[in-house]
Every structure is written in C-alpha cells, then in structure tokens.
Amino acid sequence: MSRETAKTGGFALQPQNMSEAMNMANMLATSQMVPKQYQNKPQDALVAMMMGVELGLNPIQALQNIAVINGKPSIYGDALLALVQNHPAFGGHQESFDDQTM
C-alpha cells in the first residue's frame, strides 16, 4: 500500500489494487475500531471502502461514515454535508428553527 504524506505530517493508507483492498478490508474487519456492522465482515467493509472511493473518502472515513441500511450502503448526513461543503461550487447554507412550527 502506498503512503501519502498529509500536510499535517501524517499518512493515509490507500490500496492500489483489489488484492491490497481486500487485505485492508480483512485487517480492518478484524479490528474493534470499526463499527459493529463491519466487524468480521470484510466483504461489507470492502464495499463501503469502494463506495468511499467514489465519494472521495479514504478507507477509514468510509467505514466510519457509511451505514448499511436494509442492505444498502448509505452515507451519514454529517458526512454528506461535509462533502457538499467541500465542493468548489458550494455557496453556503443557513440553518434555522421556528419555535412556532417546530
């Protein structure tokens, strides 16, 4: 796996082929540091990692921010908002709450 040095001095592991991706999924699925929905399920972890690549997430971000709902990988709302806010065309948003209508 390649190492990409981040601006912060850290590193991100990025699999370069399917074999490396499956090895990484196996390693992560045996960890207690991934959500329970991926523990001991390397195939599910791999699918989440693949979806994450499509969205621009690294493997760990994908596993932490993609939920499986009724057998479908779905991105959590806060991760979706972060992806939208990171897009160059994003022009901002406002949130509000009306006590009258709740």
Rank of each mutant, 00 (worst) to 15 (best):
I75A: 01
V53K: 15
Q39E: 08
V68C: 05
M22Y: 12
T101E: 05
M49E: 02
N40F: 14
Q39S: 03
N86D: 12
E95A: 03
L81K: 10
Q43R: 13
Y76W: 08
Q43A: 15
L28T: 05
A21R: 06
M22R: 11
L83E: 02
V68P: 00
T5C: 00
A62W: 00
N58D: 14
A48E: 03
N58C: 11
S2E: 14
Q39A: 05
E95G: 06
Q85F: 02
V68S: 07
A6F: 03
L28D: 04
N17F: 04
P59W: 06
D78Q: 10
P35K: 12
Q85G: 03
K41V: 05
T30Q: 13
G92I: 05
L63P: 01
L80Q: 15
A67R: 07
F11Q: 09
N17I: 04
A12I: 12
H93N: 03
M102A: 12
M102Q: 13
P42R: 07
M27G: 06
Q94E: 03
A79C: 12
P88E: 10
M49R: 05
Q14I: 14
I69E: 12
L55A: 15
N26V: 14
V34C: 01
T8V: 02
S96V: 07
P73Y: 08
M24N: 00
Q100L: 10
A21N: 01
N86Q: 10
N58E: 12
Q37M: 15
F97D: 06
M22H: 05
N86L: 06
M50K: 13
L57F: 12
G56N: 12
Q85M: 09
T5I: 13
Q85D: 06
A89L: 04
K72G: 04
M1K: 02
K36P: 00
A21E: 05
L57Q: 05
S2L: 11
K7D: 10
E4V: 14
V53W: 13
Q37S: 12
N86A: 15
M22C: 06
G52M: 07
M49P: 02
A89W: 00
Q100N: 11
L63R: 01
T30L: 09
E95D: 06
P42G: 09
M18R: 14
